[in-house]
Amino acid sequence: MKASVIVFPGSNCDRDVKVAIEAVTGTPVNMVWHGDATVPASDVIVLPGGFSYGDYLRCGAMAAHSPIMRDVVRRARAGTPVLGICNGFQVLCETELLPGVLQRNASLQFVCRDVWLRVENNTTPFTSHYRRNEIIRLHVAHGDGNYFADAQTLDQLEGEGRVVLRYVDETGEITATANPNGAQRNIAGICDPTGKVLGLMPHPERLFEPALGGTDGRKMFESMLARIAA
C-alpha cells in the first residue's frame, strides 16, 4: 500500500498519522508538501489535523486552494480514497469534495477530550473493519468542529447513508451532552457519494495502540490496508 500525507504550513498531526499508518500497515508513507504540484502515486491520501495557514480567513480555506490540492481533488474525483482528519475535514469541505462547513464550536471553547462515536456506515475504505453501529472512543481537539449544512443537505446525507460517524454517549444514544461542538444532528464524520472521501473531526491516529490510552482508531488504518490490498 502506498499512502501520502499532505503537509500544509501549520499542520501538526501529519507526523502522528504517518506513524500510525506505518505502524499498522507496515509500509512507509510519503510526506507531500502543499506547494508541490502532484501527489506521488498513492492508494490513499490523508489530509492531517492542524491549523493550516493559521486558520486565516476560515479554517481550511487557504489550504483548499494550495497547489497540491488541485491534484488531490483530481485524484479524489478519479477514485483515490482520501481521508481528512480534523483540519483535513475542514479542507475537504472548503474544496467542496464534501458538503457543508465546520463552524466555530457552539461553546466557543476549544474542546480537547475523548468522545464516543457510533460507526453508522462501515462500507467506506476507512471504516470496513468496524461493525455497523459499533460504539467507539476517539479523541477530539478542535475549535471549529461544529458541522453545519442546510436541512436539505443533511436529509440527503442521512438518506444516502453518508453520515459515517455520529457523537453519542457511552451507551450509543444521540444526546446533546455527547456532542462536543454543537454539530448539526451530532455529525462527526461524513463521506462523499462514492464513500471514498471521508472527513471526520476525531483523530483516529491518537488512539491506535494501548500505550496511547486506546486502540479504537486502529481499525481505520486496518480498513484502509484491507481495502487497498483486496
Binding site: L57, A61, H65, E94, P99, G100, V101, F148, A149, D150
Partner: peptide, 9 residues
C-alpha cells in the same frame, strides 16, 4: 465566490 466567502453559510 471562490475564496473570500463560503457560500454555504
Amino acid at each position: 465566490k471562490n475564496l473570500l466567502a463560503n457560500m454555504v453559510i
